[in-house]
């Protein structure tokens, strides 16, 4: 059984981004870039399924410019077998990403596509669901547990009211939530080994997909900042302030 893991290169989660002064975008120059944390969880889960003998091959794919090969290498160092870069300088919207991934799915024919539930830059939370729709597959989004049972995947999903478990026919799409697993750190030998693992490069043209952008960004602004508050010295003072100043209790 093959698992395909789409991953994205994003600004590191520890970095607080700033908006450019011309309000066209955020400023990412010289910031630390990483593999999207939810994608890292997806890679870890796929590698664990391989280690458990459930999966036989883990393929990672990233849509982006050459720089995203760095994140593909990271995934290979975590235990993925090979990588695919879909080379583009554009920043496609989730629908185009899903169309590109759909073509890769047709070529690779995986039993499970494991994505992150959300990228921490775009915060879209769409790509997995769109891919599943295009491929006609079932989806287990926001997964905190994944079990393979014969020709079915059992996915426990983190939802607003608690947890829900669904059964999906394979092939299926699964998107990861934070509590699915805790990703490992790549060991030095594995980082060295990853350098020899293959990465193939393809293009949207080769895949037969035209990247369309139907959403135009008119401006990007900083959020309204909160005015500085006050420190109180005691519980009594806090209660007093909440009652008479803020009038919220």
């Amino acid at each position: 059984m093959k698992i395909l893991v789409p991953i994205k290169r994003v600004v590191d989660y520890n970095v607080k981004v700033r908006v450019k002064s011309d309000n066209t975008d955020v400023d990412l120059s010289n910031l630390k870039m990483s593999i999207n944390p939810f994608c890292e969880i997806a890679v870890e889960e796929a590698v664990r399924l391989k280690e458990a003998g459930v999966a036989s091959e883990v393929v990672v794919v990233s849509v982006g410019d050459k720089a995203c090969q760095e994140q593909i290498r990271t995934a290979l160092a975590l235990g993925a077998d090979r990588g695919i870069q879909v080379d583009t300088d554009q920043k496609p919207l989730p629908l185009s990403i899903a169309k590109l991934l759909h073509k890769v799915v047709e070529q690779e024919d995986p039993s499970i596509v494991l994505l992150g539930k959300q990228t921490i830059d775009g915060d879209n939370n769409q790509t997995g669901q769109m891919l599943a729709a295009l491929a006609g597959m079932g989806q287990g989004t926001f997964a905190s547990e994944l079990k393979i049972d014969g020709d079915k995947a059992l996915v426990t999903r983190e939802v607003d009211g608690g947890l829900v478990t669904v059964a999906l026919s394979l092939p299926a799409v699964v998107t990861t939530d934070l509590r699915l697993n805790e990703p490992r750190y790549a060991s030095l030998p594995n980082i060295m080994k990853a350098k020899r693992k293959p990465i193939t490069v393809t293009t949207p043209e080769e895949l037969g997909v035209t990247i369309e952008s139907t959403v135009e960004v008119l401006k990007v602004e900083s959020p309204a900042s909160r005015s500085a508050g006050v420190m109180v010295d005691s519980v009594e003072q806090l209660i007093e302030k909440l009652k008479t100043e803020a009038k919220v209790i």
Partner: peptide, 19 residues
């Protein structure tokens, strides 16, 4: 035309949809 946060709310985008 709609407004939405991204980057964990550290940036707010105004976007226009042609769909």
């Amino acid at each position: 035309t709609f407004v939405r946060p991204f980057y964990a709310g550290n940036a707010i985008a105004t976007v226009k949809s042609q769909d």
